[in-house]
Write a protein that binds this DNA or RNA. Structure first.
Lengths: 191, 191
DNA sequence: ATTTTGTATTAGACCGGTCGTCTACAAAAG
DNA sequence: CTTTTGTAGACGACCGGTCTAATACAAAAT
């Protein structure tokens, strides 16, 4: 049962940290929304940092499943897989009134300079994300579906970084213009 | 003397919050590095939030001076003003080993969902930044120095958002590839 | 059926730090 | 001399992450 409890705590932690950030969420809040007694925390995790790192990996893993469901969907052309992914994300952000954004992005700015372990895992997970996009772009270039001659690795890095930038601007301005602009620009980059 | 003390506190606050984030910096740390007693702090600021908002405005103001020194420099063509600005920023980030990034970007992700007052001022200051770039781009388009037919407002938004995204990736990966990629891409956007 | 053993789980205390208030005092201005 | 402006830091109430000692409980042994 230990593992299911851990996963439940991680799920709750993901939600809370997405909304409020790592430093702004206390163990108390995590544990009582997860309905786990306070004393148990250090039975499941060796520290709050350990917990945070596991939340990051957990969130990344969940996200990768979503990415794959789009980017490896053989029913669509590679270019459309990517664009429909972003279109759907944008719709979600509009529904939730431009909150949360990306936990990896949020933690990248909040934690990378403070704890190397965070920078390391964040960089690693972002690289995994980028690789998924890169493979899809490469596939599109090979088949002629994506005409751009720029290296797939660079296009994928630009897409990911620009997307994080758009989410940042979205969170501050609480509107969708940055997202719409990103999408329009992404369409050009994949042409 | 009121103004010099306030500015000193804001300067120290800017430094600390740039490096560690808002929630990860306590009043105690601010006060003892600024060598100002607590009693003075609450004489000048009505709360930590008030302090944070003023730090954001202070940082933005300082940044705008730097922007203007590049973007309104009549000795260079508009396109070169923009590119040299980013080139110089990149050099600085490489020197300081890819830390800190942009206080406005950092606070945008950390604070926007938690306190509306932060989202408001952050959005406002980011808009001011964008307007400076927009004016320079417009000037370049009018003179033919920047051939792109895309609206200056959109180009400037893309540049700013993509720049913040590049800084985010830089902080996590602790290397300059995201910055170099951004610059290369910016050169294309201004062609 | 009862006791023993060993592990899974939790209660609760700990200490340090959080922000903010308040009172006393010094310095400067009028 | 009085009032304003700013300094000084103790204090309170609370919350942070952490840890140890105690419990709950299941399986094994008697």
């Amino acid at each position: 049962m230990k593992n299911t409890t851990i996963n439940h705590i991680l799920e709750v932690g993901t939600q809370l940290i997405s909304k409020k950030g790592f430093h702004n969420v206390g163990l108390q809040e995590v544990l009582q929304t997860a309905k786990v007694p306070k004393g148990s925390f250090y039975y499941y995790f060796k520290s709050k940092d350990d917990f945070g790192l596991q939340v990051i990996r957990y969130y990344s893993e969940q996200s990768i499943k979503i990415f794959a469901s789009y980017l490896q969907n053989q029913a669509l052309a590679p270019r459309d897989r990517i664009l429909s992914f972003f279109q759907d994300r944008i719709a979600i952000y509009k529904e939730q009134e431009f909150t949360e954004g990306c936990l990896l992005g949020n933690c990248s700015l909040e934690m990378s300079d403070i704890k190397v372990a965070f920078a390391d895992t964040l960089a690693q997970e972002l690289d995994r994300w980028q690789a998924l996009f890169e493979a899809c772009i490469q596939e599109g270039q090979d088949s002629g579906n994506i005409p751009s001659k720029k290296e797939a690795g660079r296009i994928s890095a630009l897409l990911l970084n620009n997307w994080e930038g758009a989410l940042l601007r979205m969170k501050a301005s609480k509107d969708g213009t940055a997202l719409d602009l990103f999408l329009e620009h992404a369409e050009e980059q994949l042409s």
